[in-house]
Design a protein around this nucleic acid. Structure first.
Lengths: 249, 249
DNA sequence: ATCAATTTGATCGTTTTTGATTATTTGTGA
DNA sequence: TCACAAATAATCAAAAACGATCAAATTGAT
C-alpha cells in the first residue's frame, strides 16, 4: 500500500461519509496514525479536505438536489429499464443529443456497441462511452463542477451549429402545466437540444410525474415522446397533447 | 519473456486492479525488481501510467473515483520544474489557454488555488482542476479518445470566440527551422490558441530541443517565450528571434 | 564467427517513506 | 480556571525504494 493509494482511499471514504477519523483509518488501512496524519495534512495542503482535530472533513459538502452522484444512486431499477427502452429507439447511423440528467446517462451501457454519434454536454456520459464504438461530440462552454456538465451561452451556441435525429432529455417534473427543472442552466440546455433535434424523447421515472418544482421551462409539447415506468393510462392528457407514450416495464 | 510482453502484462494487470506493486510483479514475471522499475518508468514516460513509490497507478482518472491524487507521484523532474516555473507566470485574474501536451498538464497542481479562468480542450487538465478554485471553459468539438482531448473545426471556432491573456502550449520539437508536432490535430489547436492569446509561452523539456519531427507547423516566433530546462546559452538564435528565454532550474 | 547495440542484473550511495519517541498544543469536563 | 487526556508537531532512526554506474547476457547485423 503506497501513499497514493492511501490518499485515494481516504478521499473516497471522505466522499461517502463526509468526515473521517484518524484511528479507524489507521486500523483500516493497516498503517500507523502518524502516517494517516501526514496524509491528511498533505491533502489539506492541496485543499482537498479540511483538517480537524482527530480527522478531517469534506472541503465543500455540496448537498444539493443537483449532486449527480447522489442522484444516480436512487430509483436505479426504474431508471435502468427506462434507459434500456430508450436505447432501443436508437438505430445505427443516428446522431443523437444526450442531456445531462441522471436517467439519461443510464442509456450509455446500452449503446456502447452502436455505431452512432453522440452530442452531449455531460462529462459522466463522456466517461461512460470511453473506448466504445460511439463517436462523441463534446459541447463546449463553461464547465459546471457541481453538475459535471457544460452550460452557458457558448454551449447553446454550439448546439445550434448541429442538428440531431433524436434527443434524449430529462426533467425534474412533469404535469399538465408543463415541464419543470431544478435550475435555469439545465432548462436552457434542454430547450436548446430539443430545438435542434428531429424527435425529442423525454425520460421520466414515476417520481417525476405530476411533480412541479419551482422552474417551469417548457410546455409538455416540447417532447415528442415520453418514456416512463408510470401507469400510462393516467397520462392521457399527454397523449391528447400529441405525445407518444412509451412504457418501460 | 521480452520487454514488450512484460509491459503488456503490466498494463493488463493495471487495467484490472487499478494499481500494481513492483515486488509482486518481479516475482510473477520472474525478473528483477530493477527491470520492473525500468519498465514502469518507460511506461510512465509514454503517459501510460502514473509512477508511484513502489509501483504504479492507472493514468486514466476517468474510470476511477474522481479523486485521484498524483501530486507526489514520481514524474519527470524536468517537466515538473518547467511546469512550476510556468505556473509562476500566472497571476490571479488571468484568463489562460492550456494546450493538451503532457508537460502543460503538469501545471495544474500549481494553479489549483489561483483565481483564474482556464480555457482548455484537454480532459486530463479538466480532471486535474476538479474541485479547485479555477473556473474552467471547456472547448467543444469532436472528442478524440486516444488523445483525451477535443479537436476539429468546431474546436478552432470555439477558440476564436475567446481571447486569453496568456497561452501555455507544448511542441514535440523545436529547432531553428521552427516548431514541430507529431500530429496535425495538436498543431492546429496550438496555432489557434497562440493566435487568440496576448502572450504565448512554449514549454519544452531538453529532449525536445533541436528535434525535428515530421510535421513542421509554425515559425519559432509563434511563441513569445520559451520555458525549458535546457542550457539557455545554446539557444541564442531564439533570443535573436525575439523570444524571452526562461530557465527552469 | 565477430562486433556493436541493447537488455538485464548487481552493487552502492542517496532519497523517500514510515514509525517511534518526546515535548507541546488543544480540547474537555470538573 | 485548572487538570487530564487526546491530538499534534518536531526530531530522529530504520527500512524501503530509487538512480546511477558498471558488468554480464542477449540480440542483431555484417
Amino acid at each position: 500500500m503506497n501513499a497514493q493509494k492511501r490518499k485515494q482511499l481516504i478521499l473516497a471514504r471522505l466522499e461517502k461519509t463526509g468526515d473521517v477519523e484518524i484511528k479507524p483509518l489507521a486500523t483500516e488501512l493497516q498503517t500507523s496514525e502518524i502516517t494517516i496524519r501526514r496524509d491528511l495534512n498533505q491533502l489539506a495542503g492541496d485543499g482537498r479536505l479540511y483538517r480537524t482535530h482527530g480527522g478531517a472533513m469534506k472541503v465543500n459538502p455540496l448537498e444539493g438536489p443537483h449532486n449527480f452522484v447522489n442522484k444516480s444512486a436512487i430509483h436505479s431499477a426504474a431508471k435502468d429499464s427506462i434507459a434500456r427502452r430508450a436505447a432501443a429507439e436508437i438505430r445505427d447511423g443516428d446522431i443523437i443529443f444526450l442531456d445531462c440528467g441522471s436517467t439519461v446517462s443510464r442509456i450509455c451501457p446500452f449503446i456502447r456497441n452502436k455505431t452512432i454519434k453522440v452530442i452531449t454536454n455531460s462529462l459522466p456520459i463522456l466517461y461512460e462511452l470511453q473506448n466504445s464504438r460511439v463517436s462523441i461530440n463534446l459541447i463546449g462552454g463553461e464547465f459546471d463542477q457541481e453538475r459535471q456538465a457544460v452550460h452557458g451561452k457558448m454551449a447553446e451556441f454550439h448546439i445550434r451549429k448541429y442538428r440531431a435525429s433524436k434527443a434524449f432529455v430529462g426533467a425534474d417534473g412533469i404535469s399538465p402545466k408543463g415541464l419543470f427543472a431544478n435550475g435555469e442552466k439545465e432548462a436552457s440546455m434542454t430547450l436548446a437540444l430539443a430545438g435542434q433535434s428531429g424527435f425529442t424523447y423525454l425520460l421520466c421515472d414515476a417520481g417525476k410525474i405530476d411533480r412541479e418544482t419551482y422552474w417551469r421551462f417548457a410546455e409538455t409539447t416540447l417532447a415528442d415522446a415520453l418514456i416512463t415506468d408510470y401507469d400510462l393510462t393516467k397520462l392521457k392528457y399527454l397523449k391528447k397533447a400529441g405525445l407518444r407514450l412509451i412504457a418501460a416495464p
